[in-house]
């Protein structure tokens, strides 16, 4: 396969960026998107040119490192996949692919396709935890949890923190991300004692970081590689009103 790649290049956070166009030959359909970029970099280095910087690590869709905006879609056009699992068989020979970094005020570009997502960590630091220290836990089965709730908590706990929801949202809102964590703890009895403090703190931090508000468009849900559901946001809202 032969591809034309238009990739955002930006030397560092302070520099002005621009799109650079590359022609890449020898792309195999069974490559993953990041392997395709690795091939591009290999070619560029051999030509003595600057490679493209991008985050990637586990290559199995779980670490949340990778993430780029591909032809108008965060993580590319296939649902439920991270960039690292996106296979090149979803692209056509001769296709032009435009690759951009996540865009949001709280996600400044660090270099090329790498953005700083520490704002998401700061929201977690604000309250995304249950305050039990090592050694203080009761016997695990002392507190039974309804299986249905436990399963729902798990479904929201699978968030990988990649930021695709923010990238997809027209408002650059982090509500799906926050709601996933809030939901996980709200659904478990272990999380109830500090549910109010948690939701207040996390929402305040989310606003402080400069994320937009939720317009319930559902773009986040459709682009979430872990298919975290929109009704988590309804639960987040509910939890928030309860905490007022």
């Amino acid at each position: 396969m032969k591809l034309k790649l238009k990739i955002w290049k930006q030397k560092n956070a302070a520099a002005k960026g621009r799109f650079e166009t590359y022609d890449l030959d020898g792309v195999a359909p069974e490559m993953s998107f990041v392997e395709m970029l690795a091939l591009l970099n290999q070619t560029l280095i051999q030509q003595g040119r600057e490679p493209v910087a991008f985050d990637h690590d586990c290559h199995e869709g779980i670490c949340g490192s990778c993430g780029m905006y591909i032809n108008g879609y965060p993580h590319g056009p296939v649902k439920g996949l991270t960039t690292c699992l996106l296979s090149m068989r979803h692209f056509k020979d001769g296709e032009t692919i435009v690759i951009e970094p996540w865009r949001a005020k709280p996600f400044p570009v660090v270099k090329d396709l790498i953005v700083d997502r520490s704002a998401l960590d700061k929201i977690q630091v604000a309250g995304g935890f249950i305050s039990v220290s090592a050694g203080a836990a009761p016997e695990a089965n002392a507190l039974p949890v309804r299986k249905h709730n436990s399963d729902l908590a798990f479904d929201s706990a699978v968030c990988i923190g990649c930021g695709a929801c923010v990238a997809a949202c027209k408002n650059a809102s982090a509500m799906l991300f926050v709601s996933a964590k809030i939901s996980q703890y709200a659904l478990l009895p272990q999380g109830r004692p500090e549910a109010k403090e948690r939701v207040r703190a996390m929402i305040a931090e989310m606003d402080k970081q400069g994320f937009g508000s939720c317009s319930n468009t559902g773009a986040c849900e459709s682009q979430c590689p872990k298919q975290i559901k929109l009704f988590n946001i309804a639960r987040l809202n509910r939890e928030y009103y309860k905490a007022l």
Binding site: F129, V132, A134, G135, A137, P138, Q184, L188, Q190, G191
Partner: peptide, 8 residues
Amino acid sequence: HFTAIGVP
């Protein structure tokens, strides 16, 4: 411990 800190 993991159960107490909300691991599902």
